[in-house]
C-alpha cells in the first residue's frame, strides 16, 4: 500500500469520525443529508458483498467493517434516535434517491468488466459513490449557515477522493496492472463534483470567514 492510498483511507476515516462526533456528541445532524448517508450505506453494502468470502488483509476487512458499521449507524441515528432526528432538515433535504440509484444501476448493467451478479453490484457501487454526495452538496447550498463540523466532513470526503486519484497515478506507474477505466472515470467524476465546494472552502478559510455557498 502506498502513502497516497493510506492517506486517502485515513482521510475517509476522519470524515466519518467527524460526522459521528457531531451526531453522537452534539446530538445534532443539522446540515447533514440523510439521502447522501443512505446512498453511502447502499454503496458499501453492494461493494463489500465478498467481505467474508474474499480475504485481502486484516486492515482491509477492518476498514470495510468500519465503513459498513458507521454508515448504517449514521442512518439509524438520523432516522431513529429520539433527539438527533429532531435536528434533521427534512424539508431542505429533498433530493430523490431514485434519480441517482436507477441510472447508476442501468449503467452498471451495460458497462461492467464482467456480467456477473457480484461484478455488476461492485460496478453499481462505484457509479453510485461517484454521485452520492450530490444531495449533501444541494443541502449545503440551501443551508445559510454551514457549521464547522459539516464543512469539515465534506472537505475530508473530497480530500479522500483527491488522494485516491494520486494513489491510482502512483499504482499505474509502479505496478503491472491494466487500465481500470470504470474505477478511474467514476472516481474522477466524483472528485470533480467537489471542485466548487473546495473553491469556497479555501476562500472562506483564507479570509477567515464563515463558509457560505452562493445560492
Amino acid at each position: 500500500m502506498n502513502i497516497f492510498r493510506l492517506a486517502g483511507d485515513m482521510t475517509h476515516l476522519a470524515s466519518v469520525l467527524v460526522l459521528l462526533l457531531k451526531i453522537h456528541t452534539i446530538k445534532s445532524c443539522a446540515g447533514v443529508s440523510l439521502k447522501t448517508q443512505e446512498l453511502y450505506a447502499l454503496v458499501f453494502a453492494t461493494r463489500y458483498l465478498d467481505i467474508f468470502t474474499h480475504f485481502i488483509s486484516i486492515y482491509n476487512t477492518l476498514m470495510k467493517l468500519i465503513f459498513l458499521g458507521s454508515s448504517f449507524s449514521i442512518v439509524w441515528y438520523m432516522r431513529r434516535h429520539k433527539i438527533v432526528r429532531r435536528s434533521y432538515d427534512k424539508e431542505q433535504d429533498t433530493f430523490r434517491h431514485l434519480f441517482l440509484i436507477l441510472p447508476c444501476f442501468l449503467l452498471a448493467l451495460v458497462i461492467n468488466e464482467r456480467f456477473t451478479f457480484k461484478e455488476v453490484m461492485w460496478t453499481f457501487s462505484l457509479y453510485l459513490e461517484a454521485v452520492a454526495i450530490l444531495p449533501q452538496l444541494v443541502l449545503l447550498q440551501r443551508t445559510r449557515n454551514i457549521d464547522n463540523l459539516t464543512g469539515q466532513y465534506v472537505f475530508l470526503l473530497g480530500g479522500y477522493r483527491a488522494l485516491y486519484i494520486l494513489n491510482w497515478i502512483y499504482r499505474y506507474f509502479t505496478e503491472q496492472h491494466f487500465v481500470h477505466w470504470i474505477t478511474w472515470i467514476s472516481g474522477l467524476v466524483q472528485t470533480l463534483l467537489y471542485a466548487d465546494f473546495f473553491y469556497y472552502y479555501f476562500h472562506s478559510w483564507k479570509n477567515n470567514e464563515k463558509l457560505q455557498l452562493p445560492a
Binding site: 485481502i56 488483509s57 465503513f67 494513489n167 491510482w168 496492472h177 481500470h180
Partner: peptide
C-alpha cells in the same frame, strides 16, 4: 479469470 487489482481498495 483475472481479478482487477483495484478490488483491494475500499
Amino acid at each position: 479469470s483475472q481479478e482487477s487489482t483495484t478490488k483491494d481498495e475500499l
